[in-house]
């Protein structure tokens, strides 16, 4: 049975920066601009008031999605910086397990 590719571009996906002065920093995908560009937030330095635009080439995609954040973003509901920080912390500290 084929595994679904759980590292695609999607809202709430955990990513980390591969290039730029923010290299190594973790974010969640906040907005998908095109198949090449996204906006990312970490709730701290990059808050939802000014999400960081990133070329997907400069991001490492992790097999984890902040589901509650993703659900809210998909519905167009408001997400707070605190929620982003919380979700990020939880995803980063849990082991990477792929389905």
């Amino acid at each position: 049975m084929a595994a679904s590719d759980n590292c695609g571009i999607e809202l709430g996906r955990l990513v980390s920066s591969k290039a730029g002065r923010d290299r190594g920093r973790y974010y969640l995908i906040y907005e998908v601009l095109s198949d090449r560009f996204v906006r990312v937030v970490d709730g701290r330095i990059r808050r939802i008031e000014n999400p960081k635009p990133k070329n997907i080439k400069h991001l490492c995609f992790h097999p984890k999605v902040a589901e509650e954040v993703a659900a809210k973003l998909r519905q167009g509901e408001r997400v707070t910086n605190a929620e982003i920080r919380e979700a990020l912390e939880r995803l980063i500290s849990s082991p990477e397990g792929g389905a």
């Binding site: 049975m1 084929a2 595994a3 679904s4 590719d5 590292c7 695609g8 990477e96 397990g97 792929g98």
Partner: peptide, 20 residues
């Protein structure tokens, strides 16, 4: 196909790594 991939297998049906 891009959206589905091969996978590690063993104790579980789907283990790491993904095999695109």
């Amino acid at each position: 196909v891009r959206d589905f991939v091969g996978h590690g297998i063993g104790r579980r049906m789907h283990e790491e790594p993904q095999v695109p």
